[in-house]
């Protein structure tokens, strides 16, 4: 039944491909500058479709469940590794492309594919704290952040994300954000539980509430800066104890119907002006060294967005933790259920 469905889908895709060159992207919501897609289509004549997901696991579950028709996905580095282990990705030899020299070697973070013969670094950024300085005064640490409600009456929110939230607890206890030790995770859980009463919500909707002044401080991605260009009182900081960073890579699926077009897109994205175009709209970091020179000054010179080497030492990136994920899941259930 399923095999038949796949066969039919493939036949249809093949038919469509003959008539018109296509490329199907499956990306996080609002995670690519639409102008890039327009430019790509204008230059190559390849029609691009875009579907979105809201977590690595959602994307993985769909691909594992047999979703076909997608060419390119944008997993975080640890998910890139998982997908490689599961044989879901296609080798592209993108590292042999002439423009690959533009890529900062520091951004080749995959443990399974250290030379980038499969995936191409897409974008990276930090996960820190936004705060409304008028309400909270200056904040520099997680301790400051969690003290906001008691000190100022302002509200704070954390991301509705299992690993991001537990990472705060691990960092605060000086543990690795990838720890598989139940004792570490217990410490992290207790840390978050101790502060749960101060947290108004676990939410991805905090940026609009920051703008309206309903939330005083929020745990969020660096890209949130895009909302506060006109609001200098909203600051972004990387807590002194440390924080997480993320990086997504562009990967081609083993099941991709249009692998050649996918490679064309990767090469297109290797161009400095294209990578810079994405930064200009996304307010995050790029792995393209040449592109870093081309991004708008207000982003380039914003210490909130473009972090210095000192800050980089305080940033931790998620890795695949295998079966230990279950420990995090149980800790997360405990945190969300506690009254």
């Amino acid at each position: 039944m399923k095999a038949l469905g796949v066969a039919v889908a493939l036949a249809l895709m093949a038919g469509a491909a003959q008539a018109e060159e296509t490329l199907a992207l499956y990306n996080w919501g609002d995670y690519i500058n639409p102008e890039i897609l327009t430019k790509f289509t204008a230059e190559t004549g390849i029609k691009v479709t875009l579907d979105t997901y809201s977590s690595n696991e959602e994307m993985l579950a769909k691909i594992q469940a047999g979703a076909t028709g997608y060419d390119i996905v944008f997993p975080s580095v640890h998910m890139n590794d998982i997908m490689l282990k599961l044989g879901l990705l296609e080798k592209t030899d993108i590292n042999l492309s002439p423009d690959f020299k533009n890529i900062d070697p520091a951004n080749l973070r995959s443990k399974e594919d250290p030379t980038s013969s499969y995936c191409l670094p897409y974008a990276w950024g930090t996960v820190g704290v936004f705060y409304n300085e008028k309400i909270t005064g200056p904040l520099t640490s997680w301790a400051d952040f969690f003290a906001v409600p008691e000190k100022t009456g302002g509200k704070i929110t954390l991301l509705d994300d299992m690993r991001e939230v537990l990472a705060i607890g691990l960092i605060a206890n000086g543990k690795s954000v990838n720890s598989a030790d139940p004792a570490d995770i217990k410490l992290a859980t207790d840390y978050i539980l101790a502060h749960k009463a101060s947290v108004s919500a676990f939410s991805y909707d905090s940026m609009a509430m920051m703008t309206s002044g309903d939330i005083a401080a929020a745990h969020f991605f660096v890209g949130g800066n895009v909302f506060f260009i006109q609001m200098p009182e909203i600051k972004y900081m990387i807590p002194s104890e440390g924080a997480t960073m993320y990086q997504e890579n562009i990967c081609v699926l083993a099941s991709a119907p249009d692998k050649e077009n996918a490679k064309k897109f990767m090469e297109f994205y290797l161009r400095p002006e294209i990578a810079a175009l994405n930064v200009a709209q996304q307010y995050n970091g790029t792995a393209n060294v040449q592109a870093r020179e081309l991004i708008p000054a207000e982003i380039k010179n914003n210490p909130n967005i473009t972090v210095g080497p000192e800050t980089l030492t305080r940033l931790h990136i998620f890795e695949d933790i295998g079966a230990a994920l279950k420990l995090y899941d149980r800790a997360w259930n405990t945190i969300r259920t506690a009254q």
């Binding site: 696991e57 993985l60 299992m162 279950k326 995090y328 899941d329």
Partner: peptide, 8 residues
């Protein structure tokens, strides 16, 4: 959560 983040 079991399907979309715990992968269980």
């Amino acid at each position: 959560q079991q399907f979309l983040s715990a992968r269980n």
